[in-house]
């Protein structure tokens, strides 16, 4: 078995505790995330996934239960929480609004600089991070204002990558991007994880995005882990997902409906080309109805 990088044990978080507005956002959650996985987190608005993500790098403190990073209880020694934040990098929704430096280079260098790294190491990290997000060196001296929306988003993500976190967390990295920008960012994330071997966790409302790149899918519902498994395992439970206000990828949904007529079909299909191949052979083989 692979090493566990993040683990929660009965993790609980309560907002506005002791007031009439008290709300339990995370309710006794138990999950183990293995090193090197690319975990997609899904859950409807208010399911507790953002609260969970904020626990992953110590932005919130548990009201109950524990959270472990690399086998160590994050909150055992309060003074160490800063270290946690260097190990687990979070990139929030619409991170492009957080760019503030004069140039793309300076913005990406901000994180590594705060880590107290020397100049050469900072430089190496910035250049490497720019490569990961597909911005060539000509972007280094540009002002963030001169970039397109998609480029700004990627520059902001590079700022977190440059800190070389063991775990990179991206909250809705593709929200608001057009289909081409979305595909590009997804393949960059996948490639980053493959070349660095680091653990990547991303939150998304888009089931197609999850199916495209995740190695594991975590479904959060009512502050609990409702499912945790491979893309196939999770998306085969279509009815349960829909009952939670979620969905399955668009092609999968179509295949589920076809499966009712052709039970021999495997509905675990997420890619249009593969789907077309399967249906083609189904027809050529003289498809038999149920």
């Amino acid at each position: 078995m692979k090493e566990i990088i993040l683990e929660t044990r009965e993790l609980t978080h309560i907002y506005a505790k002791g007031t009439p507005y008290e709300k339990t956002a995370v309710n006794g959650m138990n999950i183990k995330i293995e090193k090197g996985e690319l975990v997609g987190i899904i859950g409807h608005t208010g399911s507790g996934k953002s609260t969970l993500v904020q626990h992953f790098n110590g932005l919130l403190k548990p009201d109950g239960g524990q959270i472990f990073l690399d086998g160590h209880d994050m909150w055992e020694n309060k003074a160490d929480i800063r270290k946690v934040r260097f190990k687990v990098g979070v990139c929030f929704q619409y991170p492009e609004y957080q760019l503030f430096e004069e140039t793309v280079y300076k913005d990406i260098a901000f994180g590594p600089k705060n880590m107290g790294l020397d100049k050469d190491e900072i430089n190496r990290r910035v250049i490497e991070a720019m490569k990961y997000v597909g911005l060539d060196e000509s972007y280094a001296d540009k002002s963030a204002f001169d970039l397109s929306g998609g480029e700004k988003r990627r520059a902001a993500i590079a700022g977190v990558m440059a800190m070389s976190p063991e775990v990179l967390i991206l909250d809705e990295p593709c929200a608001g991007l057009d289909p081409a920008g979305r595909d590009m960012l997804l393949s960059l994330i996948k490639n980053y994880r493959e070349s660095t071997g680091s653990t990547v966790i991303f939150v998304s409302h888009n089931m197609d995005d999850i199916a495209k790149i995740a190695t594991r899918v975590l479904v959060v519902n009512d502050g609990k882990e409702a499912m945790y498994g491979t893309v196939d395992e999770v998306f085969s439970r279509c009815d349960e997902l829909k009952a939670m206000g979620l969905d399955v990828p668009a092609v999968t949904d179509l295949f589920m409906k076809l499966k009712m007529i052709y039970p021999q079909l495997d509905a675990g299909v997420y890619d249009i080309n593969k789907a077309a191949d399967i249906l083609y052979s189904l027809l050529k083989g003289g498809a038999v109805r149920a």
Partner: peptide
């Protein structure tokens, strides 16, 4: 153009490319 088509339309188009006589204008499941 950096855009896409709905899954049913895309799949229908791919089948056509493979020689299956899918009709035009398929947009939904």
């Amino acid at each position: 153009l950096g855009l896409d088509v709905p899954a049913a339309a895309g799949l229908s188009h791919e089948l056509k490319k493979r020689g299956i006589d899918m009709p035009d204008g398929i947009l939904d499941n």
